[in-house]
Write a protein that binds this DNA or RNA. Sequence first.
RNA 1: GGUCACGUGGCCGAGCGGUUAGGCAGAGGUCUGCAACACCUUUUACGGCGGUUCGAAUCCGUCCGUGACCUCCA
Length: 487
Amino acid sequence: MGLQIYNTITKNKEVFQPLNPGHVGLYVCGPTVYGDAHLGHARPAVTFDVVYRYLTHLDYKVRYVRNITDVGHLVGDGDQGEDKIAKKARLEKLEPMEVVQHYTLGYHKNMQSLNTIAPSIEPRASGHIIEQIKMTQEILDAGFAYEVNGSVYFDVVKYNEQHAYGKLSGRKIEDLLSETRTLDGSSDKKNATDFALWKKAAPEHIMRWPSPWSDGFPGWHLECSAMSTKYLGKQFDIHGGGLDLLFPHHECEIAQSVAACNSEPAKYWMHNNMITINGQKMGKSLGNFITLDQLFSGEHKLLDQAYSPMTIRFFMLQAHYRSPLDFSNQALLAAEKGLERILGGLTTLDKIKASESSSVEIQEAIDGFFKAMNDDFNTPIALSHLFDLVKTINNLKASKATINQTDLDLLKNHLHVCIFDILGLKPSQTPTTQNSKEDEIMQILLELRKKAKENKDYETADLLRDRLLEIGIQIKDSREGTTWQKS
RNA sequence: GGUCACGUGGCCGAGCGGUUAGGCAGAGGUCUGCAACACCUUUUACGGCGGUUCGAAUCCGUCCGUGACCUCCA
C-alpha cells in the first residue's frame, strides 16, 4: 500500500495522490520571529522535515515552502493595532527589521542543529505586501469583505451564506457568533467573527505600508494565503502547521482562498500536536517556557542536564506527530539512551563480516519500517523496527547468528537510508578529541594502567580508573582493547 | 460556558475487535582480576461501572480525571 496521510479536513486517513503526478507542493506555517525559538517550534519543524524527507525518498519532487512571519500579528490582549514585532522593537529600541533579522538567524541556527532541511522557499510576510494588498482587493471585489475607516475586514457571515465557514475545525457559525467574547474598542467589525485583511496603522505605529485604503499593515491570516498562492498555486497538495493554528488561522486561510480564488488551497491538511511540559501547555505566562538554546545548553531550572539537538529530534520521532508529547527529564534521558542504541548499532554494523549463509531475517523489519512510514508517518513504529534490526546486528556481533554478503549489503544500505536520509538523525560529534594532547596523555595513562594490570597491581589500575572517573572520564575495557570517553 | 481530543505496566510511548509494539528504568546473565561500559534474556498494562460480542485496551453508554481550541501562540 502506498502513502496514507491523515487529513484534518476529512478526519480520515487518505491515500496520498498528488495533484500533479510526481510533484508535491508543501506549505508549512513558520514562526513569528519576535523571540528565541523554543521547544514548541521544534515539533512542526521536525514533523514536516520528516514529511519532506520521506516524500523526497518516494521520488516526489517536493517544493517545500515555510514562511517567516515578520509583520502583522497583533499583540494578545486588546486590539491595540500594534503588532508583536513593532512592540518588541519599541521595547528594545531597535529597528523592527533588526528584531526580525536577529530572531530569524537564531531560528535558522536552531533548525540546522535539529538537522532539518531548509525549505525550498522561505518567504517573508513583509516582502509580500503587494501580493497581500492584491488578494485583499480580490476578496473585496468578490464581495466578501468591507472597508471601515481605512481597514478592511473579511465578512464571515456573508461568506458562510455561500460556503461553509468552520468546515476545517468543525465549528458552526451560530456558535461562534454567540460565543465569541465581546471585545470593546474594536467595534469596526460588523460581526465578532469577522477578521482583518488590512489594518489601518495608528500614527505611532512603526511598521506601515501604503495601500488603497490606508497606511497600514496586512491582517494576520492573509500572508499564508497570499504566499502559498504565489509559490504553490491556487491549489496545492499539503498544508501543515501546529494544531493550535487550526482555528482560526487555517480556517481563515480557507475562507480567504475560496473568496479570492474560488478554490480551497490545500488538498491535505496536516496538523502536528502540541508539546506539554510535565503535563501542562508550554507558555511564557506559565513560566515553563524553554528555548532551544536553553535545551541544548541545559541552562534552565526545569532541566537536569543539557540535551543534544539529536536527542530532541529522536524524542519527537518516538511519538506520533498527531499525539501530544509530554516533555520531562526522564523522557528525554530515555530518548538519549535510545538514540545511542540506534547509532551504536550502526557503528557495530561496520564491524560485521559476511558468512556463507544467513540465519537472520532482515527484510521483514525493513518492510515494517516502510509500512509504518506509509501509515501516516508513524515514526514510533518505524523506529521499533530499527531497534529490532539493532538487536539482530548485536547478535551477529556476538556470533549468535550469521549473515551473507547480499543481506549484509541490504542491511547497510537500508539502515543508512532509514536513519540518516528519512528520519534525519545524525551521529553526534566524536566524543573523544582526536589527535589532541589530551588524547596523547590519555594513551599514556591507559598504557600505565595496562602495565599495572599485567603486574597484577590492581590497586594502581583501579586508582587510575577511579580518579579518571571522578573528573568525568570513563575507561571502557573490551576484548579489542581499552578506550575512553568523556561523560 | 461552547466545541473537540485523550486517559495503556515504575516512566515515555505505539496499537484501536482475537497474535510479544518499541525505548528507558528494574531483575537475571555474558564479558571482566573486580567493576563500569556494552551486549543477551526477562517481570509488570490497558481510569471506574455497565453493555454489545464466542472474544474488547480496541466498539457503545455512563461516570470520574486530564488536556487542547474558542484570544497571540508551534
